[in-house]
Simulated scan of single mutants.
Amino acid sequence: MMATVSSKAASVVFDHVTKVYGKDVVAVNDVSLTIAPGKLVTLLGPSGCGKTTTLRMIAGLEMATKGRILIGDKDVTTLPATDRDVSMVFQSYALFPHMTVLENVSYGLKFSGFSKAETLERANAGLSLVGLDGYGGRLPSELSGGQQQRVAVARALVLEPQVLLFDEPLSNLDAKLRRHVREEIREIQQNLGLTVVYVTHDQEEALAVSDEIVVMKNAAIAQIGRPRELYDAPADTFVADFIGEANLVECQIVAVEGDMAEIEVGGIRHRLPSRGLRPGKAMLALRPSRIRVTEDEGLAAAVEKVTYVGPRMEYTFAGDFGQLFAVSDDVDAPLKVGDAIRIGLAASGPVLVPDA
């Protein structure tokens, strides 16, 4: 079912935006980007790549050095945060400890011209949206971390912003709770048709919640695409390795015919999409979950490490090609260290990638 886009949801456009701190520290370098109304777009990348600065420029907490920023049809490049119709959910939640949950959620509404009755109604509706009916009288200290995060989301939602911003919202939660809260955020975003810009360094989190992912590297955009596109067709070795872990193996493109390439790796030949590459040295990306042990022909290898992690096995395979990290759901009949194996190159498994 397609989510309905909220009438308040707005697009976000970056038009050749650069942010420089001091004389020469470039935090964001010539970024152009369009986020469609009602979509959840994640800015993903390692520390220092520029994703949080990009988010803060949307919020008006940082000003662009060059370029333009538009929210909807409005140029907000020089507008302060108070004049932008956006709300931000911070990593630290930023709840007032001496205020009740209801008072925290109502706080922003008090400055928006609503009557006391309407403020109360909207605040209670916000708590209901995030599953916290009946929690209004509690203090933040009486809530779990996940509940506090939901209060922060409710406080942002009740303002009905054109754009809702999340800055590493789950990093203070344990793994099980992270999964639960990210599902809630995604469900609320889809149900309400909100425009959401979400910052994280967690690849799995980005893949799970996003309509589109913007992968950033060294203050610039490395690739933009839907989660499946980035996973299956990374633009280069950086994106391949950063999104969902990839084994990068050197290979030789022997021939290219149309859009298919014949490669040689570890003494065997394999055909796969050329992705615009020409004959010569290239890199092959192999996802750990798509590495298959086969009895037929394949890359000769030995099992070097075996680790049991509950729902799956983790392996390190070694051969003339180097080392490969692989995972398998078969925990009942695991391989053993020292086993001689062959690794099959499945049709949908490996992908050629340009070097970053």
Rank of each mutant, 00 (worst) to 15 (best):
I291N: 00
Y315K: 04
T119D: 01
R182W: 10
K23R: 09
R312Y: 12
A59T: 00
L132K: 12
L164W: 03
L277C: 15
D296Y: 11
L139R: 14
G134E: 07
T294P: 08
Q189R: 13
D167A: 04
G267M: 10
Q190D: 03
N218F: 01
L164K: 05
V215Q: 08
A219M: 06
L192C: 15
E250M: 03
M216P: 10
T100P: 05
G113V: 12
L44E: 02
L55C: 06
L165G: 07
S47F: 14
A154T: 06
K110I: 13
K305L: 12
E160I: 12
F321A: 00
A255R: 14
G131S: 06
D329V: 00
R150A: 03
G322I: 00
I341A: 03
A282F: 10
A255H: 15
L170P: 04
V153E: 08
T237G: 08
G193Y: 15
I185C: 10
L44D: 02
F96G: 06
S171H: 06
G67M: 10
V163C: 05
G349P: 00
A3K: 14
G349W: 00
R155F: 09
L61D: 06
G319D: 01
T54H: 11
A235N: 07
L109E: 05
R287D: 02
G67E: 04
Y135L: 04
E205W: 09
I185Q: 11
G193M: 12
D174W: 03
L43Q: 11
G225P: 06
T237W: 13
A346T: 01
I263R: 00
A347W: 10
N124R: 07
A261W: 14
R68L: 13
G38N: 14
I213C: 02
G50Y: 03
E257I: 13
L324S: 01
R292M: 06
Y135T: 03
T119Y: 00
Q147D: 02
A123F: 03
I253E: 13
G145I: 04
D339S: 05
R312G: 08
E168C: 11
V41N: 12
L143V: 07
Q149E: 05
L248E: 03
G113R: 12
E314D: 10
D259E: 15
V254K: 11
V105G: 03
A220I: 14
L157M: 11
N104Q: 12
M313A: 00
D75Q: 09
L165Q: 07
V214Y: 06
P37K: 11
T237I: 14
F166M: 02
D332R: 02
D83P: 09
